[in-house]
Design a protein around this nucleic acid. Structure first.
Lengths: 267, 267
DNA sequence: TTGCTCCTCACGTCACGTGAGGTGGC
DNA sequence: TTGCTCCTCACGTCACGTGAGGTGGC
């Protein structure tokens, strides 16, 4: 009494979907007219609507088939589970939205606005764009790795920028992008870094744990090292003077080791 | 410097996904080690994270590729669209949850609790379970067809049940499920239906528009007709007396036609 | 007769996952 | 030497969609 398109219309699905359900045995094949057309009745509409309610809720069709054959207890257990999944899916989408809403334009994709603000502050201080690009990439990786600790880290970075030495470091690093690997001014950068490390240790800010794994810190180091010809030279000088690392500079094999997490001088 | 599993780990994706991105050209193939292993750098991590942010937001990978190559204006337009889609997806899931929360057990799948309450009232009146099953199937179809009008229709149905004639009709229909098609008591049912129609017309409740298409009403009629052997006989008697239809009974070719929507006597 | 619906294959799509069969690295 | 990682195909999965090529219904 109903054609396939009428059936599909009453249940708000496509004709192709109905035929698909026949193929996989989810919806029984109805009788055929003399010309081979499928002829449905109201019961098929009801069954198809039931199928869609479950499928719309994200239940795989194989599970839908099980549930349609299940008893009431099993069914209501399943509905509770489905509801929980829907709920966590909603949470996920909300998190995604807030992530998106904090995004600005192309360059800053995947960055919370607080990081964008920090980068803007660097820009307003006249720091070289290439240095800012390095910072950005570092923060993108950190944000993916330990999203919960970003704000705390940023607060410290902002505080560090109050020290004129730190601003000076950033400026010098910008210039250093164009230096050859044997430029003698590498020592000046090393001097600046050493002064900053001493004051960080003195103020106790060098002791905060950043929660980054050693491997990840190595990655950040490698990224920085590859960014400028002078970088390996600076690192070598610091090594000679008893420091190691780069993202996370610390005294080399010190007899009184500090917690391995001074402020990230560079990224 | 990074293996494929390290890269995948830093960006929180599977190794298979990374290889898939290489295959479709979304992520450029990196250099290989002597033994053929892929070797990634920090830039690959950043790019992969960017890809995942977009893909997690439901952007198709082909679109991700476009967006990564797009300028800022095009990109931010796209982010707005993505956000809108996320929002409507959240709305959809919320609607699904409230639909699910109103579901009870297996039999009542796809039915709001108000309909379940109506069916429970019929049950408490001692109506035959088969009649209640017919009612349920009818409401499932109506709920899928005109979900917005369900509550209004139910209010009227509840009011109709205050008429002892209506309760009597339901009881008699329950008995009639077992009657043979030539049972003379078909005329009693027709009498009852006629009385109810006259009083509905007198009270003006027969004039409410139910918003159902003619084809859909025919489907409901056919469903009822097929449910019991006696049903066609009752319909024939009513036809003789100048009424037509079943779900929506109305005077046949009346010179003063009323709005085609008396209360649904049966479903 | 025309256009619309219906039919059945077979293959495509999307974003990977699975598994076979093999090699390299510590 | 053992187990782990990596490699490349090729095929599978999920829920349909697309399109060819053909027939029936009004």
């Amino acid at each position: 009494v109903l054609s396939i398109s009428q059936l599909a219309g009453y249940a708000c699905v496509t004709v192709k979907a109905v035929r698909h359900y026949h193929r996989i045995g989810l919806l029984p094949e109805p009788a055929r007219s003399v010309s081979g057309y499928r002829e449905y009745d109201a019961a098929a509409v009801v069954l198809l609507i039931r199928i869609r309610v479950l499928a719309d809720a994200g239940v795989p069709l194989a599970r839908v088939a099980q549930l349609l054959a299940a008893d009431e207890a099993e069914f209501s257990d399943a509905v509770v589970q489905i509801d929980q999944r829907l709920n966590s899916e909603i949470d996920r989408l909300h998190a995604l939205r807030s992530r998106l809403s904090r995004l600005t334009a192309g360059d800053n994709l995947a960055l919370p606005s607080t990081i964008v603000a920090y980068l803007d502050r660097l820009r307003s201080l006249g720091i070289d764009d290439r240095i800012i690009g390095l910072e950005r990439d570092g923060w993108i990786m950190i944000a993916a790795q330990v999203p919960g600790e970003i704000e705390e880290m940023l607060t410290q970075k902002h505080a560090e920028l109050e020290d004129p030495d730190m601003v000076q470091l950033y400026r010098m690093l910008g210039d250093a992008m164009d230096w050859r690997s044997d430029d003698p001014r590498a020592a000046d950068i090393a001097d600046l870094l050493e002064r900053l490390m001493h004051s960080a240790i003195a103020s106790g800010t060098a002791e905060a744990d950043d929660g980054l794994s050693d491997g990840f810190v190595e990655l950040l180091d490698a990224s920085t090292l590859a960014s400028a010809p002078i970088a390996p030279a600076v690192l070598a000088i610091l090594n000679d003077r008893g420091w190691q690392g780069w993202t996370r500079i610390q005294p080399l094999a010190s007899s009184t080791p500090i917690d391995p997490s001074p402020p990230e001088e560079l990224r």
